[in-house]
Amino acid sequence: MSDLPYLTDDERDRYGWQLTVRGFGEEGQRRLKAATVLVSRIGGVGGTVALQLAAAGIGRLVLAHAGNLRLNDLNRQLLMSTDDVGQQRIESGVRRLRALNPHVEVETIAENIDESNAARLVARCDVAVSAGPLFSERLLMNRAAVRQRKPLVDCAMYELEGRLTTIVPGKSPCLACLYPESPPLWKREFPVFSAVSSTVGSLAAMEVIKLIAGFGEPLAGRLLTFDLGDQSFRTVRIDREATCPVCNDRA
């Protein structure tokens, strides 16, 4: 605890409503302040993760997302504004985060996760969040996180449904235990509302906060599935695949 940064009076005031959360407290807040979180893509899911973590007072966000904002991103990419259409998405997003909480350091990388950057970006964080639409990105983040023994929160959704799990290397199965290949039928454009993507993002942000502050029970070894069509939420067990090429030799 002595290595953790102290809170300023301004920060104690800003975070006053959460400092009284049971199991969190001032030490939890200091842990957040000391932490770096990587978010892969700041779209409907990852943008909400970043917003929630900025509000909560994470020390440093590393945000990776390539490309410019399109009009049809705005049904769910809540960090962005209509005026930003055609602009680089990552720069639009960061303005909102800095306006919300200037204490948070935000580093932007105008790239998506690929073979060349996954290990390097994961190495810079304490916890990673995978919020992109491509299985190739998710599986690369998974491999880097397992090798570096970093927790990874993995997010997914479709229409009114969401899915979430947290990979804690050494303690839980990994994403490759569930998805041994990049599924050939997956299409990166799919039906979704912001109310769904931002629910997934808020749930993921809570996982990150719990992992860093050390309270609650992250979804290690469990998959959360929910359906906002009937508001049903369920967690089920997931098991390690004994022959998994990614996490097997780390068991």
Binding site: V45, A131, W186, S197, V236, D239, E241
Partner: peptide
């Protein structure tokens, strides 16, 4: 209450009244 890739639990025997939930792969965005 256990989610498993189909190939891994293919030989699981079902009983009358079991509930089986099928989840095709989905992702973020």
């Amino acid at each position: 209450d256990v989610a498993t890739p189909a190939r891994r639990n293919a030989s699981t025997t079902l009983r009358p009244g079991d509930v089986v939930t099928l989840l095709p792969p989905v992702s973020g965005g």
